[in-house]
């Protein structure tokens, strides 16, 4: 079963790479028409360029080469034909990871806490406040909340820097305190989904027969919550947390644009606008692999944390 999951994940990544490659192939124009711009009418130049960039070989061959490279970490060259993609992407990936980890460190514990609190105090003041906030966080577009926060915290109060001016290659430590506002916005947005999920799962578990039984067995309230209710209520949250993490690592384009943060998301937009397709392909592959891996990790974690699943695979 475990092996099956891993294999399925692998299959998904393969299909993604196929989709990415085929998608780019099917688009009108290629790297050369783009590179040459208005000179592309010149047949000779075009042919020369295609020869230089190896575009004349059958797509299958190039796909095989591309995937081979990707597996060994060599993502090839960008559309200008000189820069190595791995160097461009590397810095951005580091910055995106930095942002994602900061947001996770704030958002996930907060979301779990809020979810549990509003589930336990269902329909009472803490729940009403948290649930209303969650609705706002889920519905208001990120660029709106980001814009409003900049307006209040940066423009009016002047507490935090509103945009990031640090260059992409700078070490992680130099991103403080500029990173704080984007982290606040991201945690706010990601918090909402996880919190709602946890809340509804806590409510279900608190109404379950085994929680009633624990109460009637005389287990003190908090002991009941921590021993009997929460371990079961938090299980289904694993998958939502995974989806959120995948979303965070997948480049949070809008936020990065609003705060001028040099992460993968902005690189993606810039590359798409410049039609720097090799870079787009590489980013897509990285992000998709992260998605698959995080979800795989969530499945495995669920399997380990859920005694039903665990015993199913261990005791047989």
């Amino acid at each position: 079963m475990l092996i099956r999951r891993v294999l399925l994940g692998g299959v998904t990544v393969c299909i993604v790479s196929l989709i990415i490659f085929a998608g780019v192939e099917m688009l009108p124009g290629d790297a050369c028409t783009q590179f040459l711009g208005e000179y592309q009418a010149d047949e000779e130049l075009l042919a020369q360029c295609r020869k230089d960039l190896d575009l004349n070989r059958p797509a299958i061959d190039r796909f095989a080469e591309w995937t081979q490279g990707a597996i060994t970490g060599d993502l090839g060259l960008a559309a200008d034909g000189t820069t190595k993609i791995s160097t461009i992407v590397g810095d951005r990936l580091k910055n995106s990871l930095l942002l994602a980890f900061c947001a996770m460190a704030v958002g996930i514990p907060l979301a779990l806490l809020l979810g549990v609190v509003s589930g336990l105090w269902r329909d009472r003041l803490p729940d009403i406040i948290a649930s209303t906030l969650a609705i706002f966080a889920m519905t208001i577009p990120e660029f709106v909340s980001a814009t409003l926060l900049i307006l209040v915290l940066s423009v009016w109060l002047g507490w935090l820097p509103g945009i990031v001016l640090t260059s992409a290659a700078a070490p992680a430590s130099e991103f403080f305190p500029e990173i704080l506002l984007p982290v606040i916005v991201l945690s706010f947005v990601m918090c909402a989904h996880i919190m709602r999920m946890v809340r509804s799962s806590v409510i279900d578990v608190m109404a379950s027969d085994y929680v009633q039984m624990a109460t009637l067995k005389g287990v003190p309230y908090w002991q009941m919550v921590f021993r009997h209710a929460l371990p079961n209520a938090l299980l289904p949250a694993i998958n939502v947390v995974a989806l959120t993490i995948a979303w965070l690592l997948g480049g949070v384009v809008v936020i990065e644009v609003v705060f001028n943060y040099p992460g993968l998301g902005r690189l993606m937009i810039d590359s798409i606008s410049d039609r720097n397709l090799p870079v787009v392909q590489s980013i897509a592959l990285i992000v998709a692999s992260v998605y698959v891996c995080v979800n795989l990790a969530a499945d495995l974690l669920t399997m380990i944390a859920n005694p039903k699943l665990r015993t199913m695979y261990m005791r047989k």
Binding site: D209, Q212, K217, G218, Y221, P231, N306
Partner: peptide
């Protein structure tokens, strides 16, 4: 509350309708 917790499952115990669902699954 404390006295009630001592009584419940102490001097006064319950055997529930559906034990399959009344036993905590993770313990």
């Amino acid at each position: 509350r404390n006295a009630l917790q001592r009584l419940r499952g102490g001097r006064l115990a319950l055997i529930p309708q559906n034990s399959g669902q009344s036993l905590t699954p993770n313990l």
